[in-house]
Amino acid sequence: MKTTRDKNERIANLKFASVYPHYITKIEKKGRTVEELQQVIEWLTGFDKNTIQKLIDENVTFQSFFQKANLNPNAHLIKGVICGYRIEEIENTLTKKVRYLDKLVDELAKGRKMEKILREA
């Protein structure tokens, strides 16, 4: 399934602060913690707890969020299907990064062990 230009633009302009509470709700319903969520985000982006909060306060878009990020060199090891899209087949770089984050949050909510979520080469 290919992403469309409109879908890619919508994702780019989506505010991180509008999605973050949904991540929290999803993982807490499954017994995971905000600290674990922040650990996952830090692994992917390099953002610590304070930086995540600053980006939320600044109401940044996902485009800006990932422009500021230092993507983990092992992020390419994130594979599978999320939101109906196979991550490995997503061509738009920003959309792929957002789906990486979605996949990590999904794995956290599904109870996957942290060592497996934080991929090592």
Rank of each mutant, 00 (worst) to 15 (best):
P73Q: 11
K103W: 02
G46W: 12
T3Y: 07
Q67A: 15
V19A: 11
T51G: 00
R119H: 01
P21A: 11
E9D: 01
N72L: 00
R99M: 15
K113Y: 04
L118E: 02
K110S: 06
N8F: 00
T93W: 02
E115F: 11
V19R: 01
I78L: 11
V34Q: 02
E91N: 05
Q67C: 05
H76W: 13
R32W: 09
K29C: 07
G84Y: 02
A109T: 00
E89W: 01
S18K: 14
N74D: 13
Q53F: 14
E42S: 13
G31W: 05
N72I: 05
T95Q: 05
G46C: 07
E115M: 07
F16M: 11
Q38T: 00
I11P: 06
L104P: 00
V81I: 12
D48Q: 10
L71D: 07
K26G: 07
M114S: 08
I56V: 11
A69G: 08
D106I: 07
D102V: 00
Y85M: 02
A75T: 05
I52K: 06
I117S: 02
N70F: 09
L14V: 06
L55H: 05
A69F: 07
H76Y: 15
L118Q: 12
F47K: 09
L104A: 08
V81S: 14
K113L: 12
V19C: 08
I52M: 10
G111I: 00
Q67P: 01
R112N: 04
T93Y: 13
F66P: 04
V40K: 06
F47T: 05
E89K: 08
F65R: 06
T4M: 10
G80W: 03
H22S: 10
F16S: 04
Y23R: 08
V81Q: 09
S64E: 15
A12S: 09
G80I: 10
N13Y: 11
Q53H: 15
L77C: 10
F66S: 03
I41C: 04
K7V: 04
D57G: 12
K49V: 10
R119V: 04
K15Y: 08
F16Q: 08
T3R: 14
N70V: 11
K79V: 09
N74V: 01
V19Q: 03
Y20S: 14
L104M: 09
E58F: 05
Y23C: 04
N50S: 15
L94H: 10
D106H: 02
I11T: 12
I82S: 02
L37S: 00
Y20G: 10
P21G: 12
T3V: 05
F62G: 02
R32K: 15
Q39C: 03
N8G: 03
T25P: 00
E107N: 11
V40Q: 07
I56K: 14
V60M: 07
Q63C: 03
Q39E: 15
F47N: 12
N92C: 00
A109Q: 03
E89Q: 10
K96D: 03
Q63L: 14
E9V: 06
N50C: 05
K103S: 12
K113R: 13
S18P: 05
G111S: 03
V34K: 14
A121W: 08
T95G: 09
K68L: 12
R5L: 06
R112Q: 03
L71K: 04
